[in-house]
Amino acid sequence: MITPEEIYLKNISRPEIYRYLGFRGTSPDDNTRKLVKRALDEISRLSRPGYVYMSYPLTTEDDLISFNGISIPSKDLLKTLKGCSDILLLAATLGSDLDAAIRKYQYSDTAYALILHATGAAAIESYLDSICQSLEKSVFKESTFRPRFSPGYGDLDISWNQNIINLTNATKHIGLFTTDTHLLSPAISVTAYIGLKTPEVK
């Protein structure tokens, strides 16, 4: 089976990168395209992808998200979890080398730093897509995945990053930390809650 690490680089969406860079409805100039290409090469060289996950039985009775003795006060998250039997906690990163490169370019080539950052953001999304596809086909064959939902989306406070990191042991296994302000470090990383639907529940 092809692993997420082998496939995600090929599936990065360029329109997504241009969208992150602020291009709306117009196509980017040659210079930007060239730098995006350079960023993709650099990411394939620098990234050290890794992910961890953990799943728990979930209840959403009385509109309260509850698993493993934890309840999350978020109406937006609740919408995606309704009717799901389990919740999957997922954390993934492209590693700290890419972060160091972005920090470096912020001082030596700010325009390129911006492009590398945007390309990194698209790359981690692609990595998450690949991970979910792979898990859906292997470990969680019986379930279908609802769209992933990350701390910081809608009314789900960004401090929930820590909950995902703690329960998946992401600091120990993939070197993912939060800062005092609850941001992820390395920055090119994602944590997410995913609802799992199983046929019995339908």
Partner: peptide, 14 residues
Amino acid sequence: EGTLYLPQLLMSAQ
């Protein structure tokens, strides 16, 4: 005007 974007602005500035 929104006909040119941040990366381009920065490249020009550099």
